[in-house]
Design a protein around this nucleic acid. Structure first.
Lengths: 244, 244
DNA sequence: ACTGCATTTTGGTCCGACCATAAAGATTTG
DNA sequence: CAAATCTTTATGGTCGGACCAAAATGCAGT
């Protein structure tokens, strides 16, 4: 049709903007409106050129922009795929920067403290509001954790799964996403932590204490148990990245 | 010279990667190590070309990548400036995606609930651990809030400032950043909320109740007051974006 | 219907060029 | 001499065309 739209967009953008901005906005809208459904291929770069009367440079930049925002998944030589963003995608967008932050002193501690703070509130919430089936799932996770004491790799997995229960309980999809983000960021440090069945047993006992406090509807006890558990874990791993 | 470096980089990248990745990694490292201090100019694109034996295309993509991650600030026609990332930069990187998420049903509620959940834990923490000077600051914020009851715009600001105190108290720099992120995301909705001195007074009274509970070292009371306050606020604004 | 090869698409990279503006330098002016 | 103004240069933004390698596709042969 007419490319009046393009010209108008350029003018509408008062500040000296990039040409790609208009394309990004348009594609963004199409993704948001479902016109480009999740999983669909983004128009090929050469198609975008024709559609928007732009050079390939701009088309590529627009796609790169969208990829940076997580709206499309652009693997090196594959057709970019539309990814309707979820909470995980959002949090994972943080990944890069957080990893950079991790290089700075005190960052790991700050992030870990934040996690502890949130999780303390979560166990408290669990103690107050967990339903019977929630408790059953929690117990199940606890038992899986116990069964894995002898296998440090499996223990790590069940450990995370146990903690994950707390994030599931509020039934707010943001919470599990936050947990996945936390574990992802802290994983590199945690994996350097020496593990052993003895150590696993200690952690398991902590988990059990937390579970019992929750089952007894004792928020303070649960919070205390969790804080003790995570404080101990911190002491155990701090040496691995703070060469003080 | 030789483009051996380039070729080697290509090989070093096991998977069929983008050439820009190597440059991104290098610049990232230089930023992290302080070799490129905060506020410094990034090498010009044509310099990067020479330095890394790459085409301008790749140089530009690398810069764009860094800009996407928030490590450099690339305003349209200005030299890109190095920005050592902080917690704010990290969370602001979420902005784009979250805004996209906001278009989906239930997202605002989920994010708001997360905020409420966290803030409840924060007032509880405040009630238990606030020091005298903390309380003084909190009282000060409360009084500023009271003084602004007649001016809705000012009230909005002091409202946020009052809540901000809770995020400051744990002295974990992540918390204030989270608050700024929350307020930034929710702001568009909140601003559509009708405001009035009467409404402001109600909110102020809620704030005062929270403050009093904290001053009395009553975590449960503080949490209850906050939850009531924010639940009421939610009821008040839900109509503005859920056309149910 | 399946397999394996040939063709076409498509993203990745390079090159060279031009423009507009920001930054820097030279020049005029008060 | 300093300030304002003009001129040059540096730099990012965009364009068009080209080539490559890998992915996707089509086709042939079994």
């Amino acid at each position: 049709m007419f490319d009046d739209t393009k010209l108008m967009d350029r003018k509408a953008a008062a500040a000296p903007n990039r040409a790609a901005d208009a394309i990004v906005a348009e594609l963004e809208a199409q993704i948001g409106s479902g016109q480009l459904p999740d999983g669909a291929f983004l128009p090929a770069e050469r198609e975008l050129m024709a559609q928007f009367n732009i050079s390939r440079t701009v088309a590529r930049e627009a796609v790169a922009r969208l990829a940076g925002r997580g709206l499309v998944e652009a693997r090196p030589r594959f057709r970019p795929v539309v990814r309707r963003p979820g909470y995980d995608a959002a949090l994972s967008a943080l990944g890069g920067i957080v990893n950079q932050l991790m290089g700075q002193a005190g960052t790991v501690k700050n992030i870990y403290d934040t996690r502890v703070f949130l999780e303390a509130a979560l166990v408290r919430h669990a103690a107050l509001h967990a339903r019977k089936d929630d408790l059953a799932l929690l117990r199940q996770a606890l038992e899986a954790n116990e069964a894995a004491i002898g296998n440090s790799a499996a223990f790590y997995v069940t450990d995370i799964a146990f903690h994950a229960m707390f994030y599931e309980l509020p039934r707010n999809p943001v919470m599990p996403a936050i947990q996945r983000a936390f574990t992802g960021w802290l994983q590199p440090h945690w994996q350097r932590m020496p593990r052993s069945p003895e150590r696993n047993r200690v952690n398991y006992l902590s988990h059990r204490a937390i579970y019992q406090a929750i089952a007894e509807r004792d928020p303070d006890g649960a919070e205390r148990a969790l804080n003790g558990h995570l404080a101990a874990a911190w002491e155990y791993v701090r040496g691995t990245f703070e060469p003080v």
